[in-house]
Design a protein around this nucleic acid. Structure first.
Lengths: 115, 115
DNA sequence: GATAAATGTTTCGATTGCGAAATAAGTTTG
DNA sequence: CAAACTTATTTCGCAATCGAAACATTTATC
């Protein structure tokens, strides 16, 4: 088929994704998850406009993702005090815990497949 | 924050997911992607019932995912000749190509983060 | 200080997805 | 062969999401 690295890579992804689906935790889309990861792994500040540009998606799409993940308390909107038009997206405890769990799942899959 | 392996793992996931979102290819959900990967990486035959059990999701959810990915020609239904109640899910050329591309993206992200 | 630009949200109409229950079609059991 | 079971799909009502355009608010420009 393909080379063995490719095979192992896809197996890793399959295993991690499969486990995440089976867990039936909050069912985030790829977009939502990508936003969440950027907010938690990259330097603040994070704005709607910035995230939209970063992922090449529309601003309303970001707004909706923030609504959904905000309800789940995975992140939070914090009005920017310098520029009242702008909103900063910040982390929450619950979001940190959630990402730690995700990391465990992926890490295990990576370990088993990529050695 | 957390240990550096966890950090690297999440960075890898972030990078891969970010790239997949930016590509604006077919926007598959986690469920759909998980199904696709199982079909391509595990031994046939694959049935609706089997996939549902494997991922702990409902059969209608699998049917819908197959509808969507079938329209995209990422996989195909093939009636089982031994048991006419059953349907086998089989691979397509387009699906193989698509997964190869996905693998490239993930592989690159893994290489850059997990060394 | 009026006008233009920037930021984020809301509205619009449409599509897609969900679980649960009902259904259609085929097979097994007694 | 009839009843029970199995497999997959369809239906139902509902919730989430989409892009595009319109909107409200705030800031920058002239």
């Amino acid at each position: 088929m393909k080379n063995s690295t490719t095979q192992a890579t896809l197996n890793m992804w399959k295993q991690a994704l499969g486990e995440l689906v089976r867990r039936q935790g909050p069912d985030l889309s790829s977009r939502q998850m990508a936003i969440l990861l950027i907010v938690y792994l990259e330097e603040p500040p994070h704005t709607v406009r910035g995230l939209a540009a970063r992922l090449k998606i529309s601003k309303p799409a970001v707004t909706r993702a923030l609504d959904t993940m905000g309800k789940l308390d995975l992140l939070r909107r914090k009005p920017d005090e310098k520029d009242l038009r702008s909103v900063n997206i910040v982390r929450t405890v619950k979001g940190s815990v959630y990402l730690s769990e995700i990391a465990d799942v992926i890490e295990k899959a990576a370990w088993e497949n990529l050695g």
